[in-house]
Amino acid sequence: MLRRVEGGDVTLAPEGAAPLAWAAAHTPTALWNDSADPEELRRSISFGAVGATCNPVIALTAIRSHPEVWTPRLRALAAEHPAWGESALGWAAVKELSVEAAKLLEPAFAASGGRDGRLSIQTDPRLHRDVDALVAQAVEFSGLAENVIVKIPATASGIAAMEEAAYRGVSINATLSFTVPQAVAVGEALERALDRRSAEGLPDREFGHVVTIMGGRLDDWLKSWTAKHRMLTKPGTLDWAGVAALKKAYAVFRERGFRSRVLSAAFRNHLQWSELVGGDLVVSPPFDWQDRIDANRIPVAVRIDEPVDADILDELLALSEFRRAYDVHGMAPEEFAEFGAARITLRQFLDADAQLDALVRDVLVPAP
């Protein structure tokens, strides 16, 4: 079924079709699940998901949600490794959770030749300033399963680590990434890594590199920033900021022929899926968002090349903080770590690490 709209034909899902499954089956847009919880992932795969992700917050939530599984397992790990501290035991659990989820994605990995079927595992956020440590951990995590893809923060240090790790054969997913300049800098670094491998005659294969933009967290930051500066925008305008950045990054990646894909994460509204359908990219909503999109039968249309409404974009571009996030040269790599959304999110990742340590402590040394 086709509908004529400004800009060309837009393919629509048949009435009554499940939106996510239809889009996954009939467009190039890949669905991933923003959690490595095995129960959620199984349900998401039934919606058409071909990938999943894990980070400190996600891992902490999954482990807390299943104490009947992880309390005895943490005790067993402590017995097997009596010298290990809380952090080592907690990260052992994160790795086990990730490997279990990766097994569920092996069919999609085989079917796509390695482009999809990936399980993202994030490097320890406490290493975010240490390039060598990030590379070493990325190489270690890459060896956990053939279909693992490793998340490294899109800061100046992290991008240097991504380039080196990708050169060494690690599949990369950028995290702590909210803006077009970050995504483009990562895309360029991955191109350099792939070119280095080719120049040295290293094996060529499908790495499935993806470059995340956490669109909803960009929305959150701009809402905080405008409130701090006592600025008012039309209701709903700031809910389009992440979508605008994702569409812009996707266009730049196509123009430049980057061999990595853009990934939409950190959902705050369904636009961060529905406005991107049709693009050769990845959308990674939490399962609850997938469930709501399907339950509400959100209309499916190929909208990736439909521009954000001009009035909305003009109002966004009037904000200097949005221009930093939207313009390809809006920030230099040295500024990435200081962007407001990056500082907030890194603190949350670090806090989740601390909470995971505390969870392990309560298992090993329960209160009297």
Rank of each mutant, 00 (worst) to 15 (best):
A354N: 10
A36G: 11
W84F: 12
L127T: 03
T11G: 08
A17H: 06
R118Q: 08
S98T: 14
G215S: 14
E338T: 15
A138S: 11
M1S: 15
A110M: 09
A23W: 02
R205G: 15
R192T: 00
F322E: 04
G340R: 02
L2M: 10
V184I: 15
S112D: 13
L194G: 09
A310W: 07
A52L: 04
V170N: 04
P67S: 14
L105S: 08
Q137Y: 04
A102L: 05
D280W: 00
D130M: 09
E315R: 08
S171N: 12
L238S: 03
A111Y: 13
P107T: 04
E306W: 07
V131H: 02
L316Q: 03
I172Y: 00
P67D: 10
T345F: 04
T53D: 06
A21N: 05
Q348N: 13
V210T: 13
V365K: 12
R4D: 00
A337N: 01
A318H: 14
A62K: 02
N173L: 07
T11E: 14
R43A: 14
G90L: 01
G85V: 14
N296I: 10
L104P: 08
A24L: 12
P235T: 11
A193K: 10
T27V: 06
P153S: 05
M214N: 05
A21G: 04
E140M: 11
A111V: 03
K228I: 00
A337F: 00
E100S: 15
E40P: 03
R118A: 03
T345Y: 02
P82D: 07
A241I: 02
L350T: 11
R3T: 14
